[in-house]
Design a binder for these strands. Structure first.
Length: 433
RNA sequence: UGGGGCGUGGUCCAAUUGGUAGGACACCGCACUGUUAAUGCGGAUGGUGGAGGUUCGAGUCCUCCCGCCCCAGCCA
């Protein structure tokens, strides 16, 4: 008898199959039992009649929520069953029965955030969380697929770094054997600038760590970032790449995860409109727009959450904001030759208040200018010696960006909080489980 | 790092503003042959985050501590 996953049962209508999973819920009605089985690919309702199958009825009666079970049964199409199919159970074998005295803690009821996060190792079994994690898998797979198709080579950056990438603030410090210190990376960007000079078009994909005391629904201390970098490229090239990448991730999720998005109650119509080109605003225009909306942000100030929300709520697609004042951007940003007070950098803001999902731009390629900027930002030159070498030996114009995976997935899935979009979130106050 | 808020059975909440700490869910039993977080009836278990203080009396008021949430800042 074939072992079948719940995702595949539609292909086995009328056949007797074997299912291996867990008892998600058990509803009963007289001499009928309606067990809900889950196996990681979905939930399937079974039906057992005491009259027709007393052994299976007996085996299932009293079986507790989340007990592991192997069941056999015949797949039937039935409009009364959730999902349209149900399993007419022929046999049930408990793999491990959870004792009644110590029941599974997570009910099919509402729980508080703290309790759920404390039990994250179990919470991920619920259909909603499992759906988000499947969309995450699909979005990441699509992202890597897209980058590969575009000729970008995966060159991962180290997690241990000798010093800060973008300055010395808010790094996690760890003991590095003997008497040295290392820091967990907060960005792979500097390293992909080096590999871009070696391989042309590259990207890295991995975790980034920020020891910032951010406590909002958009922040984690450990998050995943995809960072492309290309030699002989400028800001426009990167905007086009980011538009393509985001579009591909979103459209792949829609195409490959329709059931998951349905479980999540995501309004897919709001994602289907995501196609290039995305609406654009220069920083100058953005300030003007904010003023028209009654927001008093002065030219030269950076945007906060309120400003991002105003700008992104104008459109149903992600919004690109470009050419920020140099003074509020990182030291490595290439100035606009037309207006040196502006940097050739851009952000992409996700719709529906999910915030900034991309930040990037063209990097400074001039050795002298880069040294000057390090001085202006009060950064020591020695830790950047290798980085400066990239400008001494065959320097070329180059550009890149970083895409925050969790924020992107939060937007695609419509998750309330970014912490639902990663299996085991790390936040300022949570290091468990 | 600022500002605001919340901690009550395993879970989700209530307690007439200082006067006997309760309900629902979960668990167990019974009933019900199409349930959709089933429903109805019954049962057992079990709690005020911690330490002080005020008071005849504190879940409620005060001080400190601990844990967490939200907003801002920082950022992706």
């Amino acid at each position: 008898m074939a072992v079948v996953t719940i995702a595949e049962v539609a292909n086995h209508e009328g056949q007797e199959i074997r299912l291996r999973g867990w008892l998600y819920n058990l509803r009963e009605s007289g001499k009928l039992l309606f067990p809900q089985f889950r196996d990681g690919t979905g939930v399937l309702q079974g039906v057992v009649s005491q009259k027709e199958n007393p052994e299976a009825f007996q085996a299932l009666t009293g079986l507790t929520q989340e007990s592991s079970v192997e069941v056999t049964g015949v797949v039937r199409a039935d409009a009364r069953a959730p999902g349209g199919y149900e399993l007419q159970v022929t046999g049930v074998a408990a793999v491990q029965k959870i004792p009644e005295g110590d029941p599974y803690p997570i009910q099919l009821k509402e729980h508080g955030v703290d309790f759920l996060l404390e039990n994250r190792h179990l919470w991920i079994r619920t259909p909603r969380q499992a759906a988000i994690l499947r969309v995450r898998d699909e979005a990441i797979f699509a992202a890597r697929e897209f980058m590969h198709q575009q000729g970008y080579v995966l060159t991962d950056a180290p997690v241990f770094t000798p010093s800060a990438c973008e300055g010395t603030t808010n790094l996690f410090e760890v003991d590095y054997l003997d008497d040295r210190k290392a820091y967990l990376t907060q960005s792979g960007q500097l390293y992909v600038e080096a590999t871009a000079a070696a391989l042309g078009k590259v990207y890295c994909f991995g975790p980034a760590f920020r020891a910032e005391r951010s406590k909002t629904r958009r922040h984690l201390t450990e998050f995943w970032m995809l960072e492309p970098e290309a030699a002989y490229a400028g800001m426009e090239d990167m905007i086009a790449l980011a538009e393509g990448l985001i579009t591909y991730m979103v459209q792949s999720a829609i195409a490959r995860c329709p059931q998951q998005l349905a479980v999540l109650g995501r309004d897919v119509a709001r994602l289907e409109t995501v196609r290039p080109p995305f609406p654009r605003l220069s920083y100058d225009d953005a300030i003007e727009l904010l003023h028209r909306q009654g927001n008093a942000t002065a030219w030269g100030e950076d945007f906060g959450g309120d400003e991002e929300t105003i700008l992104s709520s104008q459109h149903d697609r992600p919004v690109i904001v470009h050419r920020f004042p140099t003074a509020i951007k990182a030291f490595y940003m290439q100035p606009d030759p037309q207006r040196p007070e502006l940097a050739l950098g851009f952000d992409i803001l996700a719709p529906e208040g999910y915030g900034e999902i991309v930040g990037g731009g063209e990097r400074i390629s001039s050795y002298d200018l880069l040294r000057e900027r390090l001085r202006q930002h009060d950064l020591p030159e020695e830790p950047f010696r290798w980085y400066l070498d990239l400008r001494r030996y065959g320097s070329v114009p180059h550009a890149g960006f970083g895409l925050g995976i969790e924020r992107t997935i939060a937007w695609i899935t419509g998750a309330e909080h970014i912490r639902e979009t990663i299996p085991f979130p790390r936040t300022i106050y949570r290091l468990w489980p």
